[in-house]
Amino acid sequence: MSPCPRCCAMNVKDSELVWFSLTVLLILLQGNSGQITVTQTPSVVVSALNQNVTLDCQFSHTPDQKVTGVILYWYHRWPGREDQYIYPHVPTKYQNRIMVLDSNRTNKDKSIVLLGVGWEDRYKYHCMLSYDRGDDANRMRGAGVLLLLHDSMTFDLAPWTPSSLLCSVEVSPHPELRLSMLEDGVEGPSVQNDTHALHSTLSLLIPLYNDRKYECRLNWSSEIILSQTYFIPSALPEPIFLYSAILLIPFIILLIILTGVLVKCRLR
């Protein structure tokens, strides 16, 4: 029995539709690969104080796009404040603290390293590239990378109450930076602080019990930035020799009494 003509027609149309979709997708992908882009990933960097931090910037283009005269700029911004350029004209605050990873103008990596970061460096940093393409001058900016900072974590007995544990850490305030406490692997209380201060302290206080493992974590979203553990084992039993001595005391006393009686009897 021959196939249904209508079914064959439907199969042919479906096949044509698939090929058409694949062709459109290929054209779109080729168009995207030929675009000139400035990308900055990741969008957030969380660093300890006094560390060197890499701020990413990638300038993507192909040789046939004839990009020339590339000039790299870096600036930072904060809501309610004017943008401040920090490269190539370096202000006093950043003197000897900015290192360009590759000064070759033809290189696509336009990242910089910020040396010895401190609380005052909490900004969103953008790279911007000025370039020529043929007779046209162009300028393109990255979406920016936010730099957040933290100090070392303190996790120990609370000074005012040794029956409690205190965990604290100083951070750049942001709603995604969160301090949490785990007891035997089960997450308990947490705290976060979204203020406009330059830095603030996150802290947690919980009661302490023997033979339980506690862990304090500083989290950025679902990522663990810092972690410390605290564990107190159960009270150890008294030495077996002490128990034996206590149990032998009545027998020793009885032996002394019996010895005394026997001595008296012999003397008579």
Rank of each mutant, 00 (worst) to 15 (best):
L149E: 01
I86L: 04
I253A: 07
L258W: 07
G188Q: 14
Q95C: 09
V18C: 10
N193L: 08
F155P: 00
M153P: 00
Y75H: 09
G80N: 06
A197E: 13
L148P: 02
S234G: 11
W78Y: 14
C4T: 07
T41G: 08
A245C: 11
Y85D: 05
R268A: 12
K124T: 14
A245P: 02
L226A: 02
I246S: 06
Q95P: 02
S180R: 02
L262S: 06
F20E: 14
R178P: 00
T41M: 06
L157T: 08
M181V: 09
R212P: 02
L262G: 06
S2N: 14
L204H: 03
T201V: 15
T92V: 12
L28A: 14
R105H: 10
V46S: 01
N193C: 12
T92R: 10
T62W: 06
L146Y: 06
R77D: 13
A197R: 08
N50Y: 08
H196R: 10
T92L: 07
G144F: 00
T41W: 06
E120A: 11
I224Y: 03
C7R: 10
T106A: 14
N96I: 03
E82F: 09
D184H: 06
I240T: 15
R212K: 15
G31M: 14
M140P: 01
D121P: 02
L177I: 13
D156R: 14
S103R: 15
R266P: 00
A143G: 10
S47G: 10
P5D: 08
R133Y: 02
Q30K: 08
L258M: 14
G188E: 12
L226R: 03
I225W: 00
Y94T: 06
I36F: 03
D194E: 09
L166D: 02
P250E: 03
E238M: 12
E170H: 06
S180T: 12
A158C: 12
V24Q: 15
D109R: 07
L26H: 10
P159F: 03
Y125C: 00
T154M: 09
L236P: 07
R266F: 06
T62R: 12
L262F: 09
L129Q: 01
G188N: 08
L129K: 00
K264M: 10
L26N: 11
G144M: 03
D109P: 01
L115Y: 05
W74E: 01
L28S: 12
D135A: 11
S33H: 09
L55A: 02
V90F: 01
D64P: 02
Y214D: 01
L262T: 10
G118S: 14
E16Q: 13
T23S: 15
N96C: 04
L248Q: 10
T106R: 07
E82G: 15
H89M: 12
L205M: 12
D151Y: 04
D136H: 13
A235W: 04
G34V: 02
L254F: 13
C127T: 04
L182V: 05
Y87H: 06
R77Y: 09
L166V: 11
L202A: 02
R139V: 13
R141W: 04
L28R: 11
L25M: 07
V18A: 09
G34W: 08
G31C: 08
D132T: 14
H199K: 08
V90P: 00
W19M: 14
A143V: 11
H126L: 08
